[in-house]
Design a protein around this nucleic acid. Structure first.
Lengths: 314, 314
DNA sequence: CCCCGTGGTGCTCATGTGAGCAGGATCACC
DNA sequence: GGTGATCCTGCTCACATGAGCACCACGGGG
């Protein structure tokens, strides 16, 4: 196609998309047959001169979803549009909303849902509507009775999800990470704790997020890890954590000793789940998202557009 | 329309615009009749959820052009799209290109074209193609033999436009602004100068830009005005200049004494022209653009999207 | 309890649009 | 200069879509 046709296709596109003229009218205006106009418009689309965006907080990017699903081998992928997003909070909110929508539409409805906790999960719980399901029981997948002012967030998340879904919440009454291995063994052998973990293992589905390996992590905020600990993990290749377990870009445990002191389901238990929904969004989490998907920690991914595109670059 | 319909319209739009499904297929997917889908899509468009942009350096915004024409009473308006523009230079280039296109397509072809000079005009001259017209003579509208390194730019502009248009250039051999009123009178009574100005008065069309009243002005750069002079003009209400004459937001001369020492066509002579094409783009020139249009200094305006929208706010 | 206005639904029909095809111009190559 | 391949053009036809209309459900008022 030469330059003059390119220009014509732009003129035609202006008249077609901005002025709502018919191809026939455009033909008269530009002295072309209506078929030529049709071809010019097709060219303009094909060459990427026409961008169509759906501007809405609930808008998704289906073509990207499909590519993520196919190229990264996921059972499902939900990619929220970032068109018109002004703040990181809004992106987070959109993603949480999408995750809530996904849960709501999920069939068959899980009877028992294992959940992690954190900012993302809390927000999802807030976006779920009352009655999003009937009789969904929720069980925590990992320890996390917080040590600080945010205490109760983890519990509130699980409780909100279960209550809105007409079911019961089962909390895991244990810290996320224990200081001594013996204590961890001790707590795990507690009948209640062991029972909860057993229940979590039997869940029909898991819903969890992933954290970036940086100083803003919930683990630092909650006091389970010091900023220095995180630096050390990063030095060993950590890109983030899933249910409190830090992984490198291949999804392998970075620090086995630390991992052994972490209470909750193991990554392999999650990997073997038939339905594991990871909700990971935001530029800071590009690397973890990639690790999660690459190491098959999830079967379903809910994320934002830019993270999804990052996954497709690899 | 309630919220559930809004959501449905977004889902429908995704399938329609991103997945290229037919309304019928969408209907099957969402359990709707195909007419309902059509209505939902119409709603989505109507509510502004669908944004269609034409991404191309030559793209124009016809609806904005029309509004500018009608609401500001211009014979014509050319508004270049700023979709996908990364730098101020690119915006400038797009506008210059559009002005060149407009000139090229102009009918009837002007026999004599009066031009001003400056960065914008120079760029337009560069974007014109050889043979854009046959036999267009160009005459300078205002003085401007530059005092500094840029000397010759004004002349080069007029010469390029005329040569590419197969005609002759007539230069106005005079400074833009003289220091003493007597010198100005003297130079204007020079037979050659008077002849050129007379020729300029008789031009079929004028093509000029406008400068912002700031320290980056060509007048400061060329040494006709000191930065302090500009500050003074701004203090008196100046928003910019047209053919070297500084105007306030109503298009009135800000400093009659300075204006009297300025060589070239007067603003009223331009106002009386049947065809006066102003090319004004860039955020810095929003105010001048408004003054130019408000005071009817031009019959045709070539500008960029954001400047045009600024004009429509008033 | 019925009646009528309102808004939404599913339809018919006319129009707009894309796929596919035959003919003809263009150009390289023989 | 002929010949074949290739691309483009203008067309037919089938399909997709929007306008307009009759109908029905709902709800308020008589």
């Amino acid at each position: 196609m030469d330059e003059i046709d390119e220009l014509l296709s732009i003129r035609a596109a202006e008249l077609y998309y901005e002025e709502n003229k018919t191809q026939d009218e455009i033909g008269q205006a530009l002295n072309l047959t209506r078929w030529k106009v049709g071809r010019l418009l097709a060219q303009a689309k094909h060459r990427g001169f026409i961008r169509i965006e759906i501007l809405h907080p609930r808008a998704r990017r289906l073509p990207i979803e499909r590519r993520v699903r196919e190229e990264r081998g996921l059972a499902d992928a939900i990619v929220v549009s970032s068109a018109g997003v002004s703040s990181a909070e809004e992106l987070q909110a959109r993603t949480a909303q999408a995750a809530a929508d996904y849960l709501t539409a999920l069939r068959p409805v899980p009877r028992t849902l294992g959940v992690s906790w954190g900012r993302t999960l809390f927000e999802i719980s807030q976006h779920l509507r009352n009655g999003w399901a009937t009789g969904v029981n929720v069980v925590q997948m990992n320890g996390g009775v917080s040590l600080n002012r945010r205490a109760g967030t983890a519990a509130a998340t699980a409780v909100a999800i279960s209550q809105k879904g007409g079911g019961q919440a089962t909390l895991l009454p244990s810290p996320a990470i224990l200081e001594r291995l013996e204590t961890k063994h001790a707590i795990e052998s507690d009948r209640v704790v062991a029972g909860v973990i057993e229940l979590a293992r039997s869940a029909d589905a898991y819903l969890f997020s992933a954290g970036a390996a940086d100083h803003n992590s919930v683990h630092v905020e909650s006091g389970y890890l010091a900023p220095g600990d995180v630096d050390l993990l990063v030095a060993k290749g950590a890109v983030g954590d899933v249910v409190g377990r830090y992984i490198d870009s291949d999804g392998n445990i970075v620090d086995p000793a630390l991992d052994a002191r972490t209470v909750g389901l193991t990554l392999d238990e999650i990997r073997n789940a038939p339905l594991a929904i990871a909700v990971v969004a935001g530029p800071a989490k590009h690397a973890v998202a990639d690790a999660v998907v690459r190491s098959r920690l999830c079967t379903v991914l809910v994320t934002d557009e830019s993270t999804a595109l990052h996954l497709l670059d690899g």
